[in-house]
Write a protein that binds this DNA or RNA. Sequence first.
DNA 1: CGAGGACTACCCACAAGTGGGTAGACGGGC
DNA 2: GCCCGTCTACCCACTTGTGGGTAGTCCTCG
Lengths: 213, 213
Amino acid sequence: MTRDRISVLLIDNHPVVLDGLKAVLETFDHIEVVGTASLAQVGLEIARQRRPQVALMDINMPKLSGIDAIELFRRELPDTRIVMLSMHDSREYISSSIMHGAVGYILKDVSTDEVVCAIETVASGGTYFSSGVRDILMADEARMEANPLTPRERHILGLIVTGRSNREIAEELGITPATAETHRKNLKRKLGIATTAGLIRYALDHGIATRAV
Amino acid sequence: MTRDRISVLLIDNHPVVLDGLKAVLETFDHIEVVGTASLAQVGLEIARQRRPQVALMDINMPKLSGIDAIELFRRELPDTRIVMLSMHDSREYISSSIMHGAVGYILKDVSTDEVVCAIETVASGGTYFSSGVRDILMADEARMEANPLTPRERHILGLIVTGRSNREIAEELGITPATAETHRKNLKRKLGIATTAGLIRYALDHGIATRAV
DNA sequence: CGAGGACTACCCACAAGTGGGTAGACGGGC
DNA sequence: GCCCGTCTACCCACTTGTGGGTAGTCCTCG
């Protein structure tokens, strides 16, 4: 290692997570928590002064979302390596974080050992994604070739885009609402998208539906 | 009038509406119901043979939606004047119907007199929109200049596009979920859009949000 | 003929959105 | 000084979606 201790900045708007993480990390001699913040803006300010090697940042924060904050960090502090900390394992959050420049993404349900491992890995130049995240990333690439949407699913996706409820979709297709629900669930699972809004953006992006009303 | 009786085709997948409307219309000497159908495709088939002057069609039907059916009618039977019959007064349905070529749009809660009036009007070449619909159409044009979205609303619309729930929006903006809910309601009211899906399409259409994840 | 995918349908408990409202605080403009 | 728009917040009853499942029927492909 270039320095004996890895400097880490913690940003999380949940005091419990913030303090807990700080306490745990401080039991490791090779890690130094140089600051904590509950808001991204404050974290950025601290980072300007302390120039941490690693920033561990929550993805969901008031005022300034973690995703948006990644960009600000990258612009002002390109050497600080950003690891996102999230409770959500949705494909959108993960790929969005990576695209914005995060080099790590760990779920909040991982062990503290794994957090330490992530810090070490990204500090030495690597990338770290917790196991659940890796699965999602790999699945994301393999899934679409292995599991293309069925015609029925594309049809239903189109109806979802127009704002139809499960009941309305069911009426329109002559099936039960429960089945429409299943198709909706399968769509989300196949695409790794957690929200209906995400499904709509996906459909518009991939020409499965058009915005024409 | 060119013909003594106006030939009308009824298409609605609700038997009650279909039969009720037929019975009522047949009490008028100058109106002749030349056919009824509970599916758009069947209605189209009947229309091919009977060439009705007016087609009264439900907007929500299984298999083939009324909106899509308008196009088929326009293509094959350009002389048949289409009046949409709907329970929904959402801006999207109405403007979509008009754009596809309907010359009338009446809500199902209107009086039968108004239905007769609509048939007479479109048969003689005019357009007919029931009072509630007119309000919405006029409002639609006037509203956006009179009532532009506030910055706060645009911000919240952007968050809705990313699939945030009211609770998540509230956390992100430091307000209560109830307030986020109010903003969401106001957005729908201002834009005359009934569904969250519609809000998303609107936002993407108007550059208030981008699909970039 | 057996496997697997597609489509269908239902179960549960819980979370969230819907669509009506009402209402207070603040600030700018007439 | 008052009006109006904005932003905030809450009420209710109701519907809908969520995220786990399981499981049956068809049809096709090897």
